[in-house]
Write a protein that binds this DNA or RNA. Structure first.
Lengths: 224, 224
DNA sequence: AAACGCAGCGAACGTTCGTTCGCAATTCCT
DNA sequence: AGGAATTGCGAACGAACGTTCGCTGCGTTT
């Protein structure tokens, strides 16, 4: 993947804009808000991107390129399958925490973009997913000698992404300890859970029956 | 928790509105869009809620009350710690999949609501989290004889929520198989990962160093 | 039968939205 | 030095926003 540096000043603008958008959402953040937050005038912003859509596109482009590129760089120097999995998680969480606003915007999706822009982003997203997925594949094969089906591989990988992406919603170093510990938690939980086979629960059928029986009685909590 | 039925017709309105909002976001969905989707006129909608804010509040209120209530109901009939954990996951995923739009809106958060409304919602959210967390506590104690620290307990619980909440972004029965299998995947991965202790990786320090060395070289992908 | 309250609507309100335009200042290239 | 491109801004545009108003039916109560 080729690279080109960002226009002078644009990266800082993207940062501040992501930060705002991550709180209020794309439509909830106005160009006037963005102007105020970046220190530019409303019309002055249009020297850096030619529409609000393009701003969202640039944030997504920058984010996915960056996290994918740093991962690729790391993997060049790491060979052990387990260490490669660790590197994936380390890179993702570290980048995530250092760029909360940006990553939050990426998570909100690109439904607002036109087809061309959003398929460019989807391509990058897919590339990154494949990178991570192939590491999961590697580590599973190396440790068990068996191979996961594509369906299972995809599912496990997505569970890993779930754990990693959800941290934005709850993690604070102050109450949950250093990020490196969090990374090790995710690594341990995922790796152990991945390698140990599926565990059947004998009461599973009972649970299902109980759910079906209960699900009709749904009420709205009374709010005085 | 007391309950009261919803105003006639409101539940259907909430459903359709959540569905729209889950795609475009709160600010991205206009009252005119909602009117069109529900079949009411723009002004007619105001007979069911007195502002767009209140609509978002009602969706959140209904969602969190429902999932929390169904869980409470299930847990009354399930005693084995492992089965209780299974019930938590089963309930969450099943409800999630049956109410994708609503749940997606809940995930987007309540930053747009005033302080009173959003703290009501945060209370419900917290209640639900505590329910789940105490089950994780139970199952860990029962199987290991030890007790997790509050910090660790919170972290593990949040990793579970991450796996469960992220499904909205990728799961489709057609390509990933039946929901019951997904539920068992999450259950197995989480339970095994939870019970097996932390696994130290000897190369962890190397990975950290490599990340630090690489992270300065970030470029924007070239987009012809 | 009269009075009332409720569900529903079209039209309009004031505001805010994303974007454009014309023009000044600065920087860059030759 | 001088023209061209870039960076910046205030003012204004039409469109879309959430909400309100006054009115029409309609079912229920008195």
């Amino acid at each position: 993947m080729e690279g080109c540096p960002l226009k002078e000043g644009l990266e800082e603008i993207l940062n501040r804009c992501s930060h705002l958008m991550s709180k209020k959402g794309y439509h909830g953040t106005s160009m006037r808000d963005l102007a105020k937050a970046t220190g530019y005038s409303l019309s002055g912003l249009y020297n850096y991107f030619k529409s609000k859509d393009e701003l969202l596109f640039l944030i997504n482009l920058h984010g996915f390129s960056a996290i994918s590129t740093t991962l690729r760089g790391m993997l060049e120097s790491v060979v052990e399958p387990e260490a490669r999995l660790y590197a994936v998680i380390y890179n993702h969480i570290r980048y995530f925490l250092a760029h909360m606003g940006e990553m939050r915007v990426l998570m909100l999706g690109t439904q607002n973009l036109d087809v061309e822009k959003s398929s460019t982003i989807n391509g990058l997203k897919e590339d990154y997913r494949i990178q991570v997925q192939s590491i999961v594949d590697e580590v599973y094969s190396a440790k068990t000698g068996k191979r996961l089906s594509r369906k299972d591989l995809e599912k496990k990988t997505m569970l890993l992404f779930g754990m990693m992406n959800w941290v934005f919603g709850w993690y604070s170093p102050r109450s949950h300890g250093p990020a490196d510990d969090l990374i090790e938690d995710i690594y341990s939980l995922f790796l152990r859970g991945l390698l140990v086979g599926r565990s059947k629960l004998s009461e599973a059928d009972d649970v299902r029956r109980i759910y079906e029986a209960n699900k009709t009685k749904i009420f709205l909590a009374e709010v005085n």
